[in-house]
Write a protein that binds this DNA or RNA. Sequence first.
DNA 1: CCACGCTCCTGCGCGC
DNA 2: TGCGCGCAGGAGCGTG
Length: 270
Amino acid sequence: MPELPEVEITRRGLAAHLPGRMVSDVIVRDRRLRLPVTADLAGKLIGDSLIGIDRRGKYLLLRFGRGSLLAHLGMSGNLRVLPADAPARKHDHIDILFGKLALRYSDPRRFGLMLWLQGDGSDHPLLAALGVEPLGDAFSADWLFQATRGRRCAIKLLLMDSHVVVGIGNIYASESLFRAGIRPRTAACRLTRAQCARLVPAVCDTLTDALAAGGSTLRDFHSAEGQSGCFQQQYFVYDRAGTACRVCDSPIRGLRLGQRSTYYCPRCQK
DNA sequence: CCACGCTCCTGCGCGC
DNA sequence: TGCGCGCAGGAGCGTG
């Protein structure tokens, strides 16, 4: 499930192979994503060259001369570079062909997006309302303290609110709160300055560790399987209910928060 | 503005 | 072995 690190790894993989290449063909096998794939995507793209690839939260922006292609991987999506003649399999919904190479979008659950935007797309509603980047300078302890004032929701839900801070999904929200020693149900407005000062680096460390772990296993984007790095083995709490805390041996607890599975250590997190 | 629940979709794991 | 159920999750949207 792609969260910010996976999306950034994807960005780097694509950026290593595709910029400077011109689109020769576009094949859309299934337009039914979270929103329908832009009509006549081929007409928008063919003949244009890819300039570069940006990331905003979990969105990827493929920059072409005539506009931007906005991609979101949803829950189960992935973008890979393959030989153009690699046979398509089930759930391979879109191919953007760059001569001998294909950029292929696969997404079994079809929660993703593939939209053509005019210009740089920054005024598009999906992008305009996004919060701060957790690996950027704006994400600071002071900023988090201010952002949590007046917010009575659980801190885990606030961390996952992309209008506040982007890119933190269900897994890394639990992991970050463990590293910060803060219980996921704590009301956001009750976080102290000291807790904010722990949570900000905890989020950054969680994301950068995941990035490092995944980056090392996903270096070759020509390989068929662009999946799962090895960060999974490093989870402190996620999906570990009933098993021993890696730090203090207490049993990890699981609960539901905002319809989402949530995990924490009752001893390490207060 | 804020909080919260619903929704989209498919694959998988579990219980019977 | 097979069937059906519930869960997993990002994020927009509707409701109160």
